[in-house]
């Protein structure tokens, strides 16, 4: 008798457990299904289930997160494309000025009827124009490749001294022409994570600028300071300086400072430098007092010990 009761009860209990398990699993699947449905319908913003202390809520949150990440990637690609397009149109616009001046001077030369002095003058103007175009073309290639991610910077541990001296060598001629001396403070030659070729390019651009906007016979100082995570390369000149309200803008494409109008330039050097630094996990910022000094600080990551 008792045996029968026990077995009946246990069968019932088993059945009940199985039923409950089934219901539980079904409910869970239904809930997951619903979550996926609303995500497929693109209504995932309205899923309030993502802030509850339950597994389902966590699952929903993660699913939404995955979806958003992928949309963000798509968005990013779209933005990059847009940037390039804008860049190209900017470029085209910027090219118009040198091209038209080249065209004008070429026309004047072709007309003849000019003095030797004038001819020399026009030719050198054409040369400047072409150089500018040349420079722009160079930048265009670099920037478009960098922006589009065609070129991947390859930051590897490398000694920084060589990089800096490469840059100084590049601008040496220019500097000596203005009798500007580039002085480097004593520093320890440490390894930094950087792509030497591109970093050198960035530093060169900054040095170029410094030389361009510095009076003749002045000095440019380079010093290196190591922080816990970054190493800071400081480049200071005693040139015309930048107005404080422009400090944020100088790294923009084709931006020229208000007091830089008298100097040749296209406004791509600092833009490129910033881009290069960013691409390798570093950053750059400027500090200046007009008429006194300008300091560019370049931050490169230290090598992990």
């Amino acid at each position: 008798m008792a045996l029968i009761v026990i077995s009946v009860v246990s069968v019932l209990l088993c059945g009940l457990t199985a039923l409950l398990c089934y219901l539980y699993v079904k409910r869970t699947y239904d809930a997951i299904d619903m979550v996926f449905d609303s995500m497929m319908a693109g209504k995932y913003d309205n899923l309030s289930e993502t802030a509850k202390e339950s597994r389902l809520s966590k699952l929903t949150h993660k699913a939404v997160r995955i979806l958003k990440t992928s949309t963000m990637d798509i968005e990013k690609t779209r933005q990059e494309k847009e940037i390039i397009q804008r860049y190209i149109s900017d470029m085209a616009h910027q090219m118009k000025t040198p091209l038209s001046s080249i065209a004008m001077y070429t026309d004047l030369l072709l007309e003849g009827n000019i003095t030797e002095i004038e001819r020399q003058e026009f030719l050198s103007r054409i040369k400047t124009g072409t150089e500018k175009l040349q420079w722009m073309m160079d930048c265009l290639v670099k920037i478009s490749r960098l922006e589009a991610g065609v070129i991947e910077l390859n930051p590897v541990p490398a000694k920084i001294k060589k990089t800096i001296s490469d840059s100084i060598n590049t601008v040496y001629m220019e500097a000596s022409r203005k009798n500007i001396s580039v002085k480097t403070a004593e520093f320890e030659d440490i390894s930094l994570l950087h792509d030497r070729k591109w970093t050198s390019e960035a530093i060169t651009n900054i040095l170029d600028n410094a030389i361009k906007y510095s009076p003749p016979d002045s000095e440019i100082y380079i010093s290196v300071e190591t922080l816990p995570v970054y190493t800071k390369i400081i480049i200071t000149d005693n040139g015309i300086g930048i107005y404080p309200d422009e400090l944020n803008s100088i790294f923009k494409r084709f931006y020229r400072g208000r007091n830089a109008k008298d100097t040749d330039g296209v406004g791509l050097g600092l833009y490129l430098a910033n881009l290069i630094l960013q691409k390798q996990g570093g950053y750059i910022y400027a500090d200046s007092r007009p008429g006194q000094y300008t300091t560019f600080s370049i931050f490169l990551q230290n090598c992990k010990k």
Binding site: P228, V229, Y230, Q278, G281, G282, Q301
Partner: peptide, 19 residues
């Protein structure tokens, strides 16, 4: 100041890296 620059760099870099 120095440490600030360091920390900010980190903030900027990582945020760029992890969107």
């Amino acid at each position: 100041t120095k440490t600030s620059q360091d920390v900010l760099g980190v903030l900027k870099m990582t945020s760029a890296k992890f969107h």
